[in-house]
Amino acid sequence: MFEARLVSSAIFKKVLDAIKDLLNEASFDCSESGIQLQAMDNSHVSLVSLTLRSDGFDKYRCDRNLTMGMNLGSMSKIFKCASNDDTVTIKAQDDADTVTFMFESKKQEKISDYEMKLMNLDQEHLGIPETDFSCVIKMPSAEFARICRDLSQFGESIVISCTKEGVKFSTSGDIGSANVKIAQTSNFDKEEEAVTIEMQEPVTLTFACQYLNSFTKATPLTNQVQLSMSDNVPLVVEYQIPDLGHLRFYLAPKIEEDEN
């Protein structure tokens, strides 16, 4: 028996909105410790890693580890039927082929049940090693989304270059080129607006705009985003889900010209 209850279904909606562009379907691995999802997009360039800790749920029970393959489009349709302040309960029997989503309105006067068929997904799981990154940038998530959106008008890829002075996002295309520089903030009053850079050594990497733009769909989850970079290692874009876990995106760099 699996049962997970979350008072605010809005968090689930936001998570789904953040990942459904990259993934059509995904396996939710449920265990005592919580719910995990790891899946690559079709092109195998990016990877989504979602962790929802059991202690973040209002009620959590998982007698046996279970993997539920779900179509994220269908799941998203179901969550569209819930109001933001509805309580959601996800239920499944051991070895079941369906999962049930139950939405309860705040005053308990309306209870809706949606049962969804599960899928058998044969997905490749990647072993991701723990890495110490050369640069870890924390910045307002909305600012990062804005930069990605703005720069993607000019080119297909964004060069992210991190030095002591700050982070530079740049691109170039047929019209010309664009550069956005962000410096570390010295003002610590507003934590959610702060830009902090922890740097061991400077890094410059090139990434495809298209994926970065998809990652920024997670912006509504939290105020801050963390970018972790090292040479020859995929970029990690991490959004914390307050009190519940985190959503990480991994993105392989573009093949550099000088690699030819």
Partner: peptide
């Protein structure tokens, strides 16, 4: 043919774990 185009793939960096 390759949907990744001129992008590296994640599988070049992280090993695929076949077992659970």
């Amino acid at each position: 043919k390759n949907p990744a185009g001129d992008n590296h793939k994640l599988t070049e960096y992280f090993p695929v774990r076949r077992s659970v």
